[in-house]
C-alpha cells in the first residue's frame, strides 16, 4: 500500500519534471539566457578587477563575498545544531577501547600525512590561478585529520587539535569576512574592501587580503568538518 502511494507520487512528480525538461532550451547553446546577462562581464573583467585567473574564485571572494559569508554562517549553524543534539567530544568523554593497527599502517600514515597537508596548502594558496580554493583545500585538511584519527584514535587527535582550538577556527571565516567587509563599508566603499576601487589598494595588498579570506575559509570549513566527524565518532564512557 505504502509502495503504491510512493509510486503514484513519483509518477506525478515525474510527469511534471518531464513537461519541464522537454520545454527547456537546448543545452549548451551560446544564445541561452543563462550565458547572456551578468556572466560575460565576470569573464571579461574578472581578471582585471580582482586579479584572479580562476573566475569561480573571483566570484566567490569578490563579486559574491556576501553570499560566501552567509554560507559559512549556514555551515556554522549546522554544526551548532549537531552539537546541540550529540554534544562536543572532550578528553573525559571520548575514551574508547582502541587497538592500534599494525606498524606498516602507522608508518604509511606518518609518512603521508605531511604530504597530504602540503597538497592541501597548495590547493588553498593556488585557488586564484588553478582549480583549487579554500573549500576544497579545507576539506582535504579535514580528510587528512580523519585518516590520522582512524589510525591513531580519537584521543590522540583531540590531544593534538583540542576542541578549544577548533572552536576558534570554526568562526574564523565569518570573523575575517566581517572584518574585511565592514572595513570596506567604514572606509566609504562597498561591502568588501577589495572590491572598492576608490581606495586605491595596491595589487599586492589586495592579493594578501584575498589570500587571508581564502585561508580562513579553508581553516573554518576544515575545522567544521573535523568537529562533525568527532561528534559522530565519540562514544560516551560507561
Amino acid at each position: 500500500m505504502k509502495k503504491l502511494g510512493a509510486i503514484f507520487l513519483l509518477s506525478l512528480c515525474g510527469l511534471f519534471l518531464l513537461a519541464a525538461v522537454t520545454s527547456l532550451p537546448r543545452m549548451g547553446d551560446p544564445e541561452n539566457p543563462t550565458n547572456s546577462l551578468v556572466v560575460p562581464r565576470y569573464l571579461e573583467k574578472g581578471l582585471r578587477e580582482t586579479g584572479c585567473r580562476n573566475t569561480v574564485t573571483a566570484i566567490l571572494l569578490s563579486y559574491r563575498g556576501y553570499d560566501t559569508m552567509m554560507e559559512m554562517v549556514v555551515l556554522f549553524t549546522a554544526l551548532a545544531a549537531a552539537l546541540a543534539i550529540l554534544g562536543r567530544e572532550s578528553l573525559e568523554t571520548c575514551c574508547e577501547t582502541f587497538v592500534l593497527p599494525s606498524l606498516l599502517v602507522r608508518m604509511v600514515v606518518v609518512i603521508f600525512v605531511p604530504l597530504f597537508l602540503a597538497f592541501a596548502l597548495y590547493v588553498i594558496t593556488h585557488g586564484f590561478t588553478t582549480s583549487g580554493g579554500g573549500f576544497q583545500g579545507g576539506v582535504i585538511v579535514a580528510t587528512t585529520v580523519i585518516i590520522y584519527t582512524l589510525v591513531f584514535g580519537l584521543d590522540e587527535m583531540v590531544k593534538r587539535i583540542s576542541p578549544g582550538v577548533r572552536m576558534v577556527l570554526e568562526s574564523s571565516a565569518i570573523l575575517s569576512f566581517m572584518l574585511v567587509g565592514l572595513l570596506g563599508i567604514a572606509l566609504g566603499g562597498n561591502f568588501l574592501i577589495t572590491t572598492t576601487p576608490t581606495l586605491g589598494l595596491s595589487d599586492f595588498l589586495r592579493r594578501a587580503i584575498l589570500l587571508l579570506l581564502e585561508v580562513s575559509i579553508g581553516l573554518a570549513s576544515g575545522a567544521v568538518i573535523i568537529s562533525l566527524f568527532c561528534l559522530l565518532k565519540k562514544v560516551e564512557r560507561g
Partner: peptide, 14 residues
C-alpha cells in the same frame, strides 16, 4: 558559465 559552479560549490559544502 562560472556562476552555477560557484552556487554548486557552496551547496556541496552545505
Amino acid at each position: 558559465n562560472p556562476l552555477p559552479q560557484v552556487v554548486v560549490l557552496m551547496a556541496m559544502v552545505i
